[in-house]
Simulated scan of single mutants.
Amino acid sequence: MRTTTVGDVTILLPDLDPEDLDQVSDLPDDDLHDGLVQAASWRGRQIADWSIRGCRITGADLGEIAWEGGALYGCEIVQTDLSGAALTGVSIERCSVTGSRLTGIRLIDVRLKDVLFDNCRFDYATLNRVSAAGSVAFIDCTLVHGTWSSCRLSGVVLRSCDLSNLELDSCRLDGADLRGSRLHAFAASLDNLQGVALTEEQLPELTRMAIDALSIDVRADSARGHDR
């Protein structure tokens, strides 16, 4: 059993030995188990009610795939292109995604449990009704200009990520660990951020969010030197 700890969260990760995996180049007609996928191109393919289990996928082109239903379990995804992909109703558990591009990805009704995203690009990503059923962490990820709506991500870890211009709508992010993340123009309802962990350096951005949320009018003290 392999685990990693990020902040206060421990994530159960896949423990794969490439020598125990079968080389796979073509997309099979049925579920994919115990496969080693290297530099394959499945761009734009459509799959439904499909399961990928115990696989290592590296250097692959999975851009613009449409995957509806099914599960991704116990997998390692490394330096893979998932830009423009659409995953709907997929369960992702005990997986690590490292150094991969997920620009413009759409995740809808996706369930995450024991998932680590490390040094990945999620810019312009759309997350709708994504839920964290267990430990989930994003480390050194770029999530700029994304739109997350109706997500349930309490306790998620977003460490040292760029959250600039990320917009959250009706998302639960309470108890999240945002330490070290860039919050420039980060937009979220304050009541959905209860109990988040921040560093002192991030407090000015939190202040900005509070001022925007409360429509506070910050003015110069024009009364100085005059009668009050």
Rank of each mutant, 00 (worst) to 15 (best):
F186W: 07
H33I: 13
D29E: 15
C75N: 14
N119F: 03
R179I: 08
C151Y: 04
L214C: 07
V90I: 12
V196H: 08
S154C: 11
E64T: 11
L214M: 10
I47M: 15
C95N: 07
F138Y: 10
D162P: 03
D17G: 04
F122N: 05
I65T: 07
L127I: 05
T3D: 08
A133Y: 08
T88N: 09
L143V: 15
A48H: 11
V196S: 08
D26V: 01
R228L: 14
W42S: 02
D140V: 00
L21H: 04
A48S: 14
G7I: 13
T126Y: 00
D34N: 15
I52V: 15
A39E: 12
T10N: 13
F117C: 04
T126M: 02
R101C: 03
N128Q: 06
T5A: 10
V78N: 05
L214W: 06
D49Y: 04
T88K: 08
V97Q: 05
L36N: 13
E76F: 00
E93W: 07
A133G: 06
R219G: 00
L87A: 05
L163W: 07
W148E: 03
V115L: 13
D26S: 08
D8F: 03
I92G: 09
N192I: 04
L72K: 01
D221H: 12
L116C: 13
S41V: 09
L206P: 00
L166A: 12
V78R: 06
V110E: 09
E19Q: 14
D49F: 03
D34F: 14
G59P: 09
Y124V: 10
M209L: 15
E200R: 14
R224M: 06
D31S: 05
A86T: 13
A71R: 14
I216T: 03
T4K: 14
D118A: 10
L173P: 00
E64R: 09
W148S: 06
E64D: 09
D34H: 15
R53V: 10
I216Q: 01
N128F: 05
G89F: 02
A66P: 00
S149Q: 11
S25G: 05
S100L: 10
R159G: 01
D49H: 07
F117G: 01
L116N: 13
T5N: 04
L16Y: 07
V196E: 11
T98P: 00
S215R: 12
L72H: 01
T88Q: 10
H184P: 00
L82V: 06
V6H: 14
Y73A: 09
R179G: 05
E93Y: 10
A60N: 03
A176Y: 14
Q46D: 07
I52S: 02
L203V: 13
T199S: 07
R219I: 08
V196D: 10
S149C: 03
R182K: 09
V9S: 15
D49G: 12
A188N: 08
I108C: 01
T98I: 15
Q194D: 15
G44K: 00
R152Q: 15
T10M: 11
G59K: 11
I77D: 00
G59F: 10
S96Q: 10
L193C: 14
R129C: 01
D17F: 04
V110Q: 09
T3K: 13
L21G: 05
L13Q: 14
G63L: 04
V130M: 11
A48V: 12
